[in-house]
Design a protein around this nucleic acid. Structure first.
Lengths: 170, 170
DNA sequence: CGGCGGTGGTTACAATTGAAACCAATGTTA
DNA sequence: TAACATTGGTTTCAATTGTAACCACCGCCG
């Protein structure tokens, strides 16, 4: 943790007191959360209605579209979603016949997942839709801003990741 | 919607086909979601454990800390959270004695909310904590990047907001 | 071989969330 | 002032999610 020029002040009794109020509408974690929810919900509505897909299910398809022959555990790695979420997404995708599951003969616990014909079809229709939304977002930014955003997100992600691993205060 | 240079291609049968796969790890909505969850969860853990607060409850406190004498409906406006979430947060905050509720004599449906003494105290202890996390995030960015991020978020937010109001395709 | 820790994946159950119905008070219109 | 629509807020019920326990299988060590 670096220097902290918002360090708490002490009042007459020596108790810690916030130097100023928290301006939620300027507070980065809050803004990220609102932005992310707005974006995800809008997109999810677009494909969810058309194809009966939840966000986790679509994520699984998106990964399988690029990387065939993954197991559930490998999906966990790729998506940072948790085991159970993957399991549920997979079972709903199987119900829709959007993916196929086959046993790995070498390890009978492991199940190899792939998009089905139908799934590949749906995938091919959602990808441009998703990209359209992303393009629309990006269209509000200049080329420079896009580059900046990319690198900024990367940095913030690393930082937040570090918290998860070691906690903020160490 | 602007020009679309990722427009779907047609294959031999004339069916729409994605020109290229979706790279989820570069897909802005996905990255925002992961980032936002990581950040919020880390912070929520920090104050949740210490003060028995959920994210919505803390948000209510944060707003009441800056703007006393609000009603639940006004909180809805301020936070973009929904009615029910506010109602539940309020009732849990009352249970903790973090806020007070008094009837508006002019309108007996309306209930005026405020931080209690205890609530003000907790607020004063959480604010620096929250700011510490934010500072830590910001510390990974240059001054320029912070400015850029601020304006980029503003632009993206407007765009996503517009979707909610009119839909993407109009 | 036989036991045992680890891994892949699912199930069960509790907590959280969201949508819609609801109640009480107010405002509005006739 | 009797009806009816509106607003503030809560409750109910179903769907979603998270945590922990669980089963089946693998691989290793004695």
């Amino acid at each position: 943790m670096t220097i902290d020029n918002n360090a708490p002040q002490l009042n007459a009794e020596g108790a810690a007191v916030a130097r100023d109020d928290l301006r939620l509408e300027k507070f980065l974690p809050y803004r990220l959360s609102v932005l992310s929810n707005r974006v995800s919900n809008a997109i999810a509505q677009a494909y969810g209605a058309r194809f009966h897909l939840t966000i986790p299910a679509w994520r699984v398809m998106a990964i399988l579209g690029r990387f065939p022959d993954l197991s559930a555990a490998e999906l966990v790695e790729q998506t940072a979603m948790d085991k159970v979420a993957i399991s549920r997404a997979v079972s709903s995708l199987l119900k829709n016949d959007y993916i196929t599951r086959s046993e790995d003969p070498a390890d009978r616990r492991r199940q190899v997942l792939n998009l089905s014909e139908l799934g590949r079809d749906v995938y091919a229709r959602i990808v441009p839709l998703a990209q359209q939304y992303e393009n629309d977002l990006m269209a509000s930014l200049s080329t420079d801003e896009r580059r900046q955003l990319d690198s900024i997100i990367e940095k913030l992600m690393d930082r937040a990741q570090a918290w998860a691993e070691r906690g903020l205060m160490d």
